[in-house]
Design a protein around this nucleic acid. Structure first.
Length: 610
RNA sequence: GCCGACGUAGCACAGUGGUAGUGCAGCUGAUUCGUAAUCAGCAGGUCAGGGGUUCGAAUCCCCUCGUCGGCUCCA
């Protein structure tokens, strides 16, 4: 545990202590530090609301100001159980009801581990520690929000109230973290998306289904063009596939019915429905028949791979054809639980910048490396530099993986080597592999400190076998190809959401929906402004002009708030000299330029995606 | 899905049982202005939807829909 985590964990004890002073019957479960602060899970008939925070913080402050030392005490299992029975664990002394969650936790402590108590003042808690020397070391703290959580995260367990807070050694650090949170709130992609008209989610269309409005669509188109150009360099072929396919396809791939809960339910044709109605078939019966394959139907695709596999399999393949690289911006549909949905980052319909590479075993290494290069190019281009690389390996103890050991070893070694050649540090995490093969994930940290899994590269020995894919080798015999799944953005929706927050709506020039706005000082300059506008548009610049009767200050303010990268202010002086006055979103007034000089600078900046 | 909070004009919000309001945005007119807000007028609402209580409901109760905060491990 780091020093800060220790401090926060200690603060969680102080919180529990304060809760007990107000509600002595409170029962506590776990109270650990988190990335942003700490929480404590509590079971209490009273519903704690933010209105209670002030009272709680007051109690907490009395405890921290008292500088109560944290005392550690080793006890036996018997003593711990006895104390739990008397309600003394996470308590202020004897209580009529036992500390039931703590008793449950004790049962799960391995036999050889020491059991320790920590006390501060009257408060005693079962705790492995460590803690700060005394409560005054918790310099500054604040309760932030309250939410519910299942005991041990299992939805079959009771729901507890989870009180969140944060703590620092000094008030200045706490203030800074509050400022950061406010900044993060301002950057929320849902807020900026609405303000700038980038996307819309409409109740009548459905939850988690994104409508890309004209400005957002421009950004998406730029993202697709960018990836498209990279793919052409790397020898990919573009394909298009439909949004739905027969259940048989997804039965063969294993998506149905195995992952049925995370899919939209199957679509059944009209005649079949009529026939089922005549038979008075119940919903449960229909569900069974679909599962068994007795009734056919279509599925909104949850993944693109089965479609791409069928393209690969549509003609005989020779080893000379490999690798075959099929790419598509493929839209997939997944049934996320309603509570999991969030703006653009967690949705039910999304478009992956997907591709599937079919290759020989010998080619795996080089193909993975190509994919990693692509992901790295993407992250660099978007200035997403705070990321880590995770290699998901098999859990040697688990039976859930398919395929021969020899294949796995080869694939894992290929992933490891490719990651090494990338020149970045990576972690290997057993148990994180897909069931069909190991994978390399790029986990990007956003402004809120949240992790987003964006780019992913996965090695797959399984699906080619399920679909009985073949190619003719140099030996004239049939061989099974290996598949690599990869998506450098992950999905366009999630990537867009992360980008909005990353840039706080200040998109780099090449992505900005409106790149330049011409601002004539008065109506007398309309014609000169119009000339400049036409010249920009003829150079493929996304430009508009503000011909309203507002004063120049108001036009600038509007353009600035709408985050237009460049404003061109034109008045009588510019018209007379054939100049334009440049104001940039980030630098402000940059002075006058001859038109052609500015146009060249503009086009260069767009081309280089700076 | 579950727990909690919330839903008033395009947006941000006020209004806690008695005639639905403010600011910005919009529209119209005047103004023609030099680097973050010119002035005036006009228009805009089934108070998320449905049901109930009441002489009377944005306001109280119930249901539905939606949004937001959470829900791996965690002494």
């Amino acid at each position: 545990m780091t020093e800060l985590e220790t401090l926060r964990h200690s603060c969680a004890h102080v919180l529990a202590n304060a809760i007990l002073k107000l509600w002595p019957e409170a029962q506590f479960a776990a109270g650990p530090p988190t990335a942003a602060g700490f929480y404590y899970d509590v079971d209490l008939p009273h519903r704690i609301t933010p209105e209670d925070f002030e009272r709680l913080e007051k109690e907490m402050r009395q405890i921290t100001q008292a500088a109560q030392p944290f005392e550690r005490q080793v006890i036996s299992l018997e003593e711990a159980l006895a104390m739990g029975q008397r309600g003394e664990l996470a308590g202020l002394g004897h209580r009529s009801s036992p500390s039931r969650f703590k008793l449950d936790i004790i049962q799960n402590i391995p036999e050889n581990e020491t059991i320790t108590l920590y006390r501060n003042g009257e408060f005693t808690d079962l705790c492995a520690g460590p803690h700060v020397a005394d409560t005054s070391k918790i310099g500054a703290f604040r309760l932030t929000h309250v939410a519910s959580a299942y005991y041990k995260g299992d939805e079959n367990n009771p729901q507890l109230q989870r009180i969140y807070g944060t703590a620092f050694a000094t008030q200045e650090e706490l203030d800074r973290s509050i400022e950061l949170l406010e900044e993060a709130k301002k950057r929320d992609h849902r807020k900026i998306g609405r303000e700038q008209g980038l996307f819309h989610i409409d109740d009548m269309v459905g939850q988690g289904l994104i409508l890309w409005t004209p400005k957002g669509a421009i950004i998406r188109q730029e993202l697709q063009n960018f990836i498209g150009a990279e793919l052409r360099k790397q020898g990919y072929s573009q394909v298009f596939t439909p949004h739905i396919g027969r259940l048989d396809l997804f039965r063969t791939s294993g998506h149905f019915p195995y992952y049925a809960e995370s899919q939209f339910p199957p679509i059944i044709d009209r005649e079949t429905i009529a026939q089922l109605a005549e038979e008075k078939c119940s919903c449960a019966e229909l569900s069974n028949r679909l599962e068994q394959g007795a009734v056919d139907g279509y599925l909104l695709k949850p993944m693109n791979c089965p479609m791409h596999i069928k393209i690969f399999d549509s003609q005989p393949r020779s080893y000379r054809d490999l690798p075959v690289r099929l790419a598509e911006f493929g839209t997939v549909y997944r049934w996320e639980q309603s509570g999991e949905l969030n703006g653009m980052t967690r949705v039910r319909g999304f478009t992956q910048d997907d591709a599937h590479l079919f290759c020989t075993e010998e080619q795996i290494s080089a193909e993975i490396r190509g994919c990693l290069d692509l992901v790295k190019t993407v992250l660099t281009t978007f200035q997403l530099t705070d990321y880590r690389v995770r290699i998901g390996l098999r859990d040697p103890a688990s039976e859930k993986y398919v395929g021969a050991n020899a294949h796995w070893e080869k694939a894992e070694e290929a992933c490891r080597e490719a990651a090494k050649s990338l020149g970045v540090s990576f972690s290997e995490e057993p148990g994180e592999a897909a069931f069909y093969g190991p994978k390399i994930d790029f986990v990007v940290k956003d402004v809120l400190g949240r992790d987003w899994q964006l780019g992913t590269v996965q090695v797959d020995f399984n699906l080619p076998r399920r679909f009985d894919l073949k190619y003719t080798g140099p030996d004239g015999k049939q061989h099974v190809p290996v598949m690599i799944h990869r998506a450098p953005f992950g999905s366009l929706e999630r990537f867009m959401g992360v980008l909005i927050e990353h840039f706080a709506g200040n998109f780099p020039l090449w992505l900005a929906p409106e790149q330049v706005r011409v601002l004539p000082i008065s109506e007398k300059l309309t014609s000169y402004a119009q000339t400049i506008l036409s010249e920009l548009i003829s150079r493929d610049v996304r430009a508009t002009a503000d011909f309203s009767s507002e004063k120049i200050g108001a036009k600038i303010r509007l353009a600035q708030m709408e985050k237009v990268p460049y404003m061109l202010i034109v008045g009588g002086r510019e018209e007379a000299a054939g100049l334009l006055s440049l104001r940039s979103r980030s630098q402000g007034d940059e002075g006058s330029f001859p038109k052609e000089i500015f146009y060249e600078r503009l086009q260069e900046e767009i081309k280089t995606r700076k």
